[in-house]
Nucleic acid binder design. Structure first.
Lengths: 231, 231
DNA sequence: CGTCGCTTTGAATACGGTCAATTTTTGTGG
DNA sequence: CCACAAAAATTGACCGTATTCAAAGCGACG
């Protein structure tokens, strides 16, 4: 059995209500892939030919606009599927996926997926569910960016990241992601300058300790308040 | 045969690569619904219990935020599916769907859909494709709102609407949607004041003729230029 | 030790939001 | 059909948030 992280893969939404035996079969038609830091799983506008589940490392999904602006749409952590558009016919990847550190992933080719979707309808239903959640997430983020101030959006984003990858320590919640100010700015739709200013301000208020590539939330409740407060 | 608009329903993405006979079966497990103007098909946060395809009329999908702001996410025209989250288990509608005029729709209950998805795997694959497109659309719009100015976003939105429902006439392209300035503002994430100013400006430049509930694009190329120009 | 990239900070500016007053349109009822 | 009330749209003035540009600081790494 070549897939050591299977135990965790089994628990994810995509495989819900599928018997261990069937999951085993499904995993057999996948292969494993290893990526070094900075390598691309795929590039935006490439024909979507594979579907991935990240089993270790971190991946950034970015979208660039016609006029060269970049947006960092999300950070993928284990055990999350990405490249889900490959599930649909004739699509191109709407984003680029780049390894932020060395990564491993389970991969299915497009043809393998399509056979699986036909053979295991529950898998298709789970995929529908995952995509429906994505639609909701982006509708939500669209609404946020359209109606809320940068400070609040940044607070929400950091809380979201903390939720994804945060680790409780005596000093506070540590968020261990190699994200620059520029990256954070792209995620909430602002400039690196504004992000820097806000983080400085929070630091001076004792809410966070913002190091390079790492951040410690000293007083989560303060962020929550900023994220939720009226006006 | 209770479904007169079937001929058009058959052509949509959801039923692609499904035989007419199967489509017939699928439609038999639906029922038809009529709505008066202003009535709601469903409300945001309601448990998602039905899936719709609009066969006549127009429907607005809105999302309201915790602090009471409203966003108009999209306008549904025939023959478009909506309420797709009902395809997934245990979801709530992320938006409200309100008839903008009197409407008819084909409706499936959640249980009916789920049986159909199992019975017709191709249907599930098509649903995946539709949802994947939605994800892309909102990623795109998220990127737009994060990086572009209001004037350009408004130009893009109007062009999009023209593409959905525009009719060529001797005077220009007529967009026949009962959208107020407030509605347009919600769609592009700004205020009705800003929309009003921009439309006035375009009108004085001879680009459009903006009436109430109706708009004539006199010089589409001008809008395209605003929508695409650098900076 | 020096360079390079990232971050911080300041100052000026602009875009768009807010508020308020006015005008125009729509719809309703006499 | 007109009059009036209500709703929607326009426009101006002011202001605040966030962007832009520039310069300096800091830290990592060869």
């Amino acid at each position: 059995m070549p897939f050591e992280p299977v135990s965790r893969v089994e628990e994810i939404t995509l495989f819900k209500n599928i018997s261990p035996g069937d999951i085993h079969l499904i995993l057999q038609s996948a292969h494993q892939k290893r990526m070094d830091a900075e390598e691309f799983f795929f590039l935006q506008d490439d024909p979507a030919e594979a579907f991935y589940i990240l089993t270790s490392g971190k991946v950034r999904l970015t979208q660039y606009t016609a006029d060269g602006q970049q947006l960092l749409l999300r950070v993928i952590v284990p055990v999350t599927p990405f490249g889900a558009v490959a599930l649909a016919d004739h699509e191109r990847y709407p984003v680029s996926a780049q390894a932020m550190e060395s990564c491993t992933a389970v991969v299915w080719s497009k043809s393998a997926i399509q056979q699986l979707l036909i053979r295991f309808p529950q898998l298709a239903m789970n995929a529908v569910k995952i995509l429906a959640e994505h639609v909701q997430e982006f509708q939500q983020r669209f609404t946020e960016i359209a109606t809320q101030r940068v400070e609040r959006r940044l607070a929400r984003m950091i809380l979201r990241l903390a939720h994804q990858t945060g680790v409780k320590t005596p000093r506070g919640v540590e968020v261990n992601l190699p994200l620059s100010r520029q990256d954070l700015a792209e995620m909430v739709g602002t400039t690196l300058y504004t992000v820097s200013r806000i983080l400085s301000q929070w630091e001076s208020q004792g809410l966070i300790h913002a190091g390079r590539e790492k951040m410690i939330i000293l007083y989560p409740h303060g962020l929550v308040k900023i994220a939720e407060e009226e006006t």
